[in-house]
Amino acid sequence: MWDLLILDPMINALLLIYDVLGNNFGVAIIVFTALIRLITFPLTRKQQMSTQNMQEMQKSKKWLDMQKKYAKDKQKLQEETMKLYQEAGINPLSGCLPLVIQLPIIFGLYQAFRVALADAPLQLLDLGRHIYPFVSSSLIPLDSKFLWMDLGQPERLFLPFLPSFGIPVLTILVVISSWLQTKLMTPPSPEGQGGQMSQMMTIYSPLLMGYLAYSFASGLALYFFVSNLLGIVQYAATGRIDWRNILPWGKKQE
């Protein structure tokens, strides 16, 4: 079922884009990422709207009064918070949806890159089983080279004056772009536990993405990087991006 619904469509979409774009797998990944972003845009937009509503609610007098009133009774605070969400028609779990959708896409992509960029007989035999009949066999084997990278392997850049140390350029770009995306799309946090957690997410989320980019095929890292950039562009297009969030002299806590 996984192969039928996720893996096979991804592999064949990648192959078709690769075919159309002159057999460049790096460009195919970039275009594929843009398509994924486009397809998931309605959900992303919904999540952003929900975030905005939440932010407005958290600035309201009612919310602030409630925080003060039940500051010492966390159980009661949670109950009252949930009531407030219900009254405002906000589903707090709706923010999980993009995450839930992203996970199978990431797992599927990782597998798709691994299968599509087969570099040994058993793996190539496996690829043959995933290809739809209408996709040309003349594409096989795919060219995994893109710029200095082998998209089927973790990325490292070896410079002539530093031949023994590979610089993980793409990993660094993924960490920076993930941090930027989290920072730009997360409003300044209120004081207290919620604020601390939000700040920790700003640190840990890019580190997790960086770890994945460092350890796994650079095709996946390329997807992360391009996806982060497009995420920022999409958010900026809605006009709500706040560049002051990334500046040290930026907006202070309200």
Binding site: T51, M54, L93, G95, C96, T186, G194, M197, S198
Partner: peptide, 10 residues
């Protein structure tokens, strides 16, 4: 993650 209540986030 902002709209997820704190007790759900981690």
């Amino acid at each position: 993650m902002r709209i997820i209540p704190s007790h759900f986030r981690w």
